[in-house]
């Protein structure tokens, strides 16, 4: 299969138009997905070892951050919801409300935000710095596609890591809710467990995981595109990292809003 984008496509100006950005990201997504398919059957160790390295850097490296943030988010959420429901005498259902919200919204969005903050800038900065040092040109000059060797391992790693971290985050948010509701609100663990059983549905978990895969695609493509299109000057590294974080945040929240709007306006969908 031959893709239409020339291998030699030079870095584009960071001041490119919205249309140029859209086209560039579309092409990058197509190429990256194509190479992901190739990766599934590849016996070429350099790329597959790249995926392992990225999973470690993006996933294992983010574990402590995600774990501690998720526990705190669980605690914050239970306090906030309990405070809001108390005037209506509905405080006892607080764990149930938070649990449902955690699976569908809090887990995937919190992890996506954390990954944007931690990894989006890192991916864009790394690729931009490779542009500055000539590593991207070296790959192109050897007839090697930077998307294949640099972007597709990162994309696959983020697609593996973000849903996995979302599952962990969901569990730890519930951990925070349990601590908050038993230690501070005085409910029994039995009551907490029974509410979780009622509220925590597989389909909510599925929606959360589905969202996290979409977020992963957005984060990896935006960060890679900003890194690869950076100018060949030192200050472009920081600029690319900043743009990657800003665009990733906006697009992740935009995508989340879009999905939530669909579920709201088509009630029976899931």
């Amino acid at each position: 299969m031959t893709l239409s984008t020339p291998v030699a496509s030079p870095p584009q100006s960071p001041n490119r138009s919205t249309q140029a950005r859209f086209i560039s990201r579309g092409q990058l997504t197509a190429r990256a997905l194509y190479w992901l398919g190739w990766l599934a059957f590849s016996r070429r160790s350099v790329v597959t070892s790249g995926v392992e390295r990225e999973v470690y850097a993006l996933g294992i490296g983010a574990l402590r951050l995600v774990a501690s943030a998720s526990l705190l988010v669980g605690l914050i959420a239970i306090f906030q919801v309990a405070t809001q429901l108390a005037p209506y005498g509905a405080e006892p259902v607080s764990p149930r409300v938070v649990t449902w919200f955690a699976a569908r919204e809090l887990g995937p969005v919190v992890v996506a935000m954390l990954l944007v903050a931690r990894s989006s800038a890192a991916i864009a900065g790394e690729l931009a710095s490779m542009n500055v040092t000539g590593e991207i040109d070296a790959l192109r000059a050897m007839g090697l596609d930077p998307v294949k060797y640099l972007v597709s391992p990162k994309l696959l790693a983020v697609i593996i890591v973000l849903p996995a971290l979302t599952l962990i985050s969901d569990a730890l948010i519930l951990g925070g809710v349990w601590v908050g509701s038993t230690v501070f609100l005085g409910y029994s663990t039995d009551r907490f467990v029974s509410q979780i059983r009622e509220a925590f549905l597989t389909r909510d978990l599925g929606v959360g995981i589905g969202k996290s895969i979409v977020f992963a695609l957005i984060i990896a493509v935006i960060a890679s595109d900003e890194g690869l299109s950076a100018d060949r000057r030192a200050s472009a590294i920081g600029e690319a990292a900043t743009r990657a974080v800003v665009y990733s945040l906006i697009l992740v929240l935009g995508a989340d809003t879009f999905v939530n709007a669909i579920f709201y306006f088509i009630p029976g969908l899931i």
Binding site: R44, V46, M130, T133, G134, D137, L139, M142, L144
Partner: peptide
Amino acid sequence: FEGSALISRISAVENVELPLLE
């Protein structure tokens, strides 16, 4: 290239085998 432009996150031998594999 100027400054060698080796791919920094992989080993020396992996850098050399890249064009061979491709």
